[in-house]
Design a protein around this nucleic acid. Sequence first.
DNA 1: CCTACCGATCGGTAGG
DNA 2: CCTACCGATCGGTAGG
Lengths: 198, 198
Amino acid sequence: MSPRHSLAEAARTRDRIVGYAVAEASRVGLEGLTIGTLADGLGMSKSGIVGPFGSREQLQIEALDRAGGIFRAAVIEPVAGLPAGPDRLARLIDAWIGYLADCPFPGGCFVTAASTEFDGRPGPLRDHLRTAVTTWRSRLSGEIAAARVESAHRSPDEAATVLIGISMAVNQEIQLLDEPDAAERGRAAMRAAVGLPQ
Amino acid sequence: MSPRHSLAEAARTRDRIVGYAVAEASRVGLEGLTIGTLADGLGMSKSGIVGPFGSREQLQIEALDRAGGIFRAAVIEPVAGLPAGPDRLARLIDAWIGYLADCPFPGGCFVTAASTEFDGRPGPLRDHLRTAVTTWRSRLSGEIAAARVESAHRSPDEAATVLIGISMAVNQEIQLLDEPDAAERGRAAMRAAVGLPQ
DNA sequence: CCTACCGATCGGTAGG
DNA sequence: CCTACCGATCGGTAGG
């Protein structure tokens, strides 16, 4: 008589699985996810993992979308209420570097890793990724344009390439090289790249 | 009576396998390599693939090392004979962008992809990768220092982070986004980042 | 959500 | 270098 209850429980189960899959995939890649490993890690059966999603690919897609939401919550939403301008760009950079240094994904920036993993694998995952990356690039470009700062770079698009690149390099320095001053150097590099005072 | 012959043939077989594995791994990742797929692709049996290397991991390591050599041949060696200075740095940037735009790996920059793939997987592959990335970073930093150019960035290490980052962003724009002007924007961004004239 | 099972493929070996 | 084979694991399904 209370289908609400079981629906809510089903939604919670999905959430748990996706959350665990995101953490796991940040370490071993989305293609490294296996239903058996997730089942073991969550103390469930394989059919309990795959059932709610229908296929591994659907679970991968939902994990990717969830990761995008986590990124937005960490980097975009904290500055969304501020007026556009150099100060908001500076705070966005701080949030971004903070996200890389104290990463919500145990294996480092999810989207960066997924990008190199899927750029050569056509399919719905690559399509989702393209959309996410393009949307973020546009937003960042707009943010830089709205800040109206002077820099060595000749267009907001060029500066966006530089900031996105620095974030990837910082991610590598943290995750692969264990470089302790990667975050500070990255923040300075980002500020310098868009002409913000140190 | 001619062991030379069979030794040379064995070496050629190894070479063929490693070369094919590099191309394949640039598309599906080093972890996506399977002995069966390589065997099919090369028209050989699985034992013919794994035999010369002893294990899949050893083949992965040799593929990674080979990829490093291909990068050096494309980006470092062309400028090795020139005197250090701004002109050599400019030519290095041109070679680097050319490598990204007309990539010897069908799936894009091998080391960038391997870095995000293995930064969360401890083991000999990650160790090899760390060494390769650290060596390249040091060389690039030295190159920037030797050029003695003025830029918005405060140290050769910071500028190296920016150039490496731009290369990663350009790789993404080419491989994932199919952005036609990625190479030109990347070249301009790299020159601006190290204070070279456009 | 579970157990039990499917055919396919995994890395690798034995023996030649 | 091959064929033939090993136990383990893959994604997924049937039936409950």
